[in-house]
Design a protein around this nucleic acid. Structure first.
Lengths: 243, 243
DNA sequence: CGGGGACTTGAACCGGGTCAACGAGCGTGG
DNA sequence: CCACGCTCGTTGACCCGGTTCAAGTCCCCG
């Protein structure tokens, strides 16, 4: 977990490691691959990005010259069709990476939905560090593999699940990620609006709303507020999603 | 799940590079990262797998101890829900990699739909080669990134496209991949059955069949046979899929 | 206390699913 | 050589989950 040596003066601090050492996601993002001395080199190529809700970090088909690591906030990834139809492909929280599209263009648009902070690493300079720190590249590969697994679950959800199942697996996923960040599992706080949920689940806002209330009527969840949902029976919910 | 690899007393096999040098995907798979001398080390950890149509290479949630590279044939990747609903997540052709799920379990089942041959690399031994040949790891990372991009296009297809659009983008994709393998773009040969197409597109076989014939009536495609489809107007088809 | 975005609710509609029957191709065995 | 059985694909009729369109309602923020 977080280290006590963060407040102690350290020769490495001079060169910039202080920022990284104090980082909330020191042990989760790209940086987790490196130790206190090594991270100075990573810090040297990093810069900070701050975003307000609604602000875009980059757009689909922008040249992909950076990799990012979320430190605080929440981002929405999405793709657009020519006529405006939108598919939300994911939500990012502190510790998550984005921009793993080496050498090409971004495959999606990334926008903040909460005030957010990120670390930005130029792809080229990051690549140059791979020789010195192979674990860095291994870390990116692992992150990419996790993203593939998540995308495939999402494919199953969009291709073969009912609205009810989609919503329940979404709530379970948000709950699990919350516990991963040390937050409670049950009142799930949703930072995104209904339209984002709908576009993530391949549904309409109306149907998300209806389904949400139907689940509440069944006693599976309780809508404390539009954006705060209690999971009343995680066991039964899990049973619905997969046996 | 049994593999068909047995060690033959062939000198070429023992000392390696001959097999790889002659390989049809020498410049596409994992191996493209290495030169003629280096590839001997890769060959040393590789073994061959042969599959008949219908045979599984591995199942969802099997421990993922290998990475594979397709040399000939065609494979189908799929996930199952408890009640039998299936989502096909992709089709693999010569030069494609699979099994990039470092350290965890496979996220999908891989089955041959044509007689197929693959190279099999134990994950652990492959990792050990990363130090000597960093380009090998870079290659895997690039492959993973491409898989992410493909998955996201698939998400858009499943979440937001109509049956008509899904079918047309599927046919376009198969056509593009065929040209990538040096085959003609237009009469698209589909090695998979309708059920596979339907489960890839998140539709039913009936609806795939109906949509296919509707597109033929419109003059966009021609069904030379159930598994051979001519794209009559690639320009108009592309216009339907995205502006 | 007023305005506006986010969310909900209702009613009608429709794209795609379901169920059932049928036909085409093909390997097998009599 | 044909009859059988099987899988795959097609077609038809009906149905349903989810969309669409159109009002509301809630709630936050000034």
């Amino acid at each position: 977990m977080s280290s006590a040596d963060r407040s102690r003066p350290d020769p490495a601090d001079r060169h910039g490691a202080a920022v990284c050492q104090a980082c909330a996601v020191r042990n989760e993002g790209i940086c987790a691959a490196l130790d206190r001395v090594e991270i100075v080199d990573l810090d040297a190529i990093a810069s900070r990005v701050l975003l307000e809700p609604g602000q875009a970090l980059f757009y689909e088909s922008d040249p992909a010259a950076f990799v990012f690591s979320v430190t605080t906030g929440c981002l929405r990834l999405s793709k657009l069709l020519a006529d405006g139809r939108r598919q939300v492909t994911g939500f990012l929280f502190p510790g998550d990476l984005l921009g793993l599209t080496f050498g090409e263009r971004f495959a999606y648009t990334a926008e903040a939905i909460l005030p957010s902070a990120l670390c930005r690493f130029p792809t080229e300079k990051l690549r140059a560090l791979f020789d010195a720190y192979p674990r860095l590249e291994a870390r990116l590969l692992a992150a990419a593999c996790n993203e593939i697994v998540a995308a495939q679950d999402h494919l199953m959800l969009l291709g073969r699940m009912t609205a009810r199942e989609r919503l329940l697996s979404f709530l379970l996923m948000m709950s699990r990620r919350a516990t991963g960040r040390g937050e409670p599992a049950s009142p799930v706080r949703l930072p995104m609006v209904r339209a984002d949920v709908a576009d993530y689940l391949g549904l309409t806002v109306e149907h998300v709303s209806r389904t949400m209330h139907a689940l509440a009527d069944e006693g599976l969840i309780r809508l404390d507020a539009a954006n705060e949902i209690s999971l009343l029976d995680p066991g039964r919910i899990e049973a619905v999603v997969l046996g």
